[in-house]
Design a protein around this nucleic acid. Sequence first.
DNA 1: CGCATTCTGTACTTACAAGTACATAATGAA
DNA 2: TTCATTATGTACTTGTAAGTACAGAATGCG
Lengths: 191, 191
Amino acid sequence: MARPRSFDPDDVLEIARQMFWQKGFQATSLDEITAMSGVAKPSLYAAFGDKNALFLKVLDRYHDGILGWAERVLAQPGPAREAIRQWLTGFIPYCSGEKGQRGCLSINSATDGSLDQAELRKSIERYNRRLEDLLRTRLRAGRAEFSKGFDPDVTAQTIMVVHAGLLALAHQRPDARRVKAVIDQVMGLLA
Amino acid sequence: MARPRSFDPDDVLEIARQMFWQKGFQATSLDEITAMSGVAKPSLYAAFGDKNALFLKVLDRYHDGILGWAERVLAQPGPAREAIRQWLTGFIPYCSGEKGQRGCLSINSATDGSLDQAELRKSIERYNRRLEDLLRTRLRAGRAEFSKGFDPDVTAQTIMVVHAGLLALAHQRPDARRVKAVIDQVMGLLA
DNA sequence: CGCATTCTGTACTTACAAGTACATAATGAA
DNA sequence: TTCATTATGTACTTGTAAGTACAGAATGCG
């Protein structure tokens, strides 16, 4: 009944994700996204709303990707300890070397002073809460593995902090072995 | 022999620090700094160079402040364990509640896509290295307090990661008690 | 006092990015 | 085929911020 869209919104979101992740929200212009995607600005506005709204969609997509992976890894059978170690270890490629330079889109965006802070914080908070829930649930389920004084709630928080710290320091492109050594040491808390 | 400067550069750096910290590099305009400081743009350019250079001076000042404090706290007599606990605990006001929202200027700036990344990374790297050196030195000096397998080098890295993680998550304004609980748990690694 | 020198304030240029007006193209339905 | 409807592309407006030209003010020195 009307002219169909000539592009796949998911493709554009994927391109925008890479660009926002690489350069940040503010430093990425819609003109650049237009150039990379081949989709003109009025179409972007029609499909996604303004730049803020586009970014929030990109961020949700990013969050969903990480959460999906976390669910898969943390749902594994076997000791909670090993599931969590594997989850943390999986971030090493994103926390070290050249690829680490861009850090984490979620953490990065929290500082961008031109984003709508209210919406942004809600999105990030939801993401952090879900991630922490996954960790806590797994730790509680594996309680039998740990000593009597073990506190799964605080430990889940601590792992979140370590995870955020590794990604915050990733911009410095640390050596992968050092990152691994830190993870190994932190795993000592799961006892 | 010429007209003297009518403002104190340190005052301007202090004002700029607050503004950059609150809103980020890109979102803070020189016009705003002019308005807050009462110093006109040509004077800013003459005194500090362009916006990048001004920011780097502000960042160095910020780094020096934290390093100075860390040196004081970590040079304390007594157990290394307590010195480090006190150092970490001292960040709680900056990692929680309303004041935590702005996070850490150093971590925040690492993501800003419009800064000169080369100079910026050098500055941050120097800062991180010096901080880690302070921690490592103190841990090595207090070796007698710890068990035989204790690794002061990796532990210094881990503390850096936890520190960065707390400040990265600070934007979500977590509860101070939760932050403290995480620190307490991490202190368990110093044994 | 008069002069060289450096700072200050106003007002400007330039560049770039967000968002939009409008004419046109592509579809499904009647 | 014709129309209603929605997408597209060009070109525009608007706002804002970085950086600067230039005239004038404030100092020390001779």
